[in-house]
């Protein structure tokens, strides 16, 4: 039985605890059609943390993000934060590729703030001030993602949630994007990034969460057993692909 967000999504005006915790998920369970997507999951996010969320397809990564953002109903547990309206969200690329009516970059930043100085500062922070009068849908993938980061900065986001933000973006643009993210964590902004590229995540973040319905690992990247992860997920995928190739594609 899914519960409405009013029962389970709490926004506190007080600090959640003494450890700079801005976001807390306690005993979160999400079921869809009797299928357990997330099972008794708990985690805390502190100021300035750079968290990489990894796991195979169907592990519940997007469901966890949507639960944290209050975009989906949960079965049990509590999601609470003390940073109301200060959560930035950068979705997967491509959701607005074919905008029917053009929206300029400065209009998009304007959705987050009415303060023009703050809007321009946010664009400078992501090295995109030259793009302010451009149409959003005419920008490259990397530029679009930077504009979405700027939108979050303009609204003073304390936590940025990025869902596969660099899929389909060239390597050079990815490097620029990741450098911007590193700078933001130094300013105390917490970041949660979901990525299939485990190598990139391990080199980028200071905390890794390996999710597969439950949290299987939560700690520093240098202690994460990458080989075990690859054996478990990637090798399984390789074997599956080999079988498909040998048997032919069944549709």
């Amino acid at each position: 039985m899914l519960k409405s967000n009013k029962e389970t999504y709490k926004i506190s005006k007080q600090p959640l605890n003494a450890n700079n915790t801005i976001f807390r998920v306690s005993n979160l369970c999400v079921d869809f059609n009797n299928y357990k997507v997330l099972d008794d999951l708990s985690l805390e996010v502190k100021n300035g943390e750079f968290i990489g969320l990894i796991g195979p397809n169907g592990a519940g990564k997007s469901t966890l993000l949507k639960s944290m953002l209050g975009l989906t109903s949960i079965s049990s547990g509590i999601v609470e934060n003390n940073i109301k309206n200060s959560i930035g969200y950068v979705p997967q690329r491509g959701f607005m590729q074919n905008q029917q009516v053009p929206i300029s970059v400065i209009e998009i930043i304007g959705l987050a703030t009415s303060d023009k100085t703050k809007a321009l500062d946010a664009l400078r922070d992501v090295d995109a001030i030259d793009l302010k009068n451009r149409k959003f849908n005419e920008l490259s993938g990397g530029q679009q993602q930077r504009i979405l980061i700027a939108k979050s900065l303009a609204s003073d986001s304390k936590l940025l949630i990025l869902d596969e933000p660099t899929t389909g973006i060239d390597e050079k643009s990815q490097d620029i994007f990741f450098e911007i993210l590193k700078c933001l964590t130094k300013r105390g902004i917490a970041i949660i990034i979901v990525s299939h590229d485990v190598d990139v995540v391990l080199n980028l973040v200071n905390r890794v969460i390996h999710l597969n319905q439950k949290i299987l690992y939560d700690g520093p990247p240098n202690e994460f057993k990458l080989e075990r992860y690859l054996t478990k997920h990637d090798n399984k995928k390789r074997i599956l692909l080999r079988h498909e190739h040998e048997e032919g594609h069944k549709c």
């Binding site: 953002l69 209050g70 975009l71 109301k84 309206n85 959560i87 969200y89 979705p91 959701f95 607005m96 009516v101 929206i103 209009e107 998009i108 304007g110 959705l111 987050a112 609204s155």
Partner: peptide
């Protein structure tokens, strides 16, 4: 206007902004 534009741009994001 701002809410309508935000929803036109991205409905999820508009919900997150309250």
């Amino acid at each position: 206007y701002k809410a309508l534009l935000h929803i036109a741009f991205d409905e999820d994001s508009a919900r997150i902004y309250g």
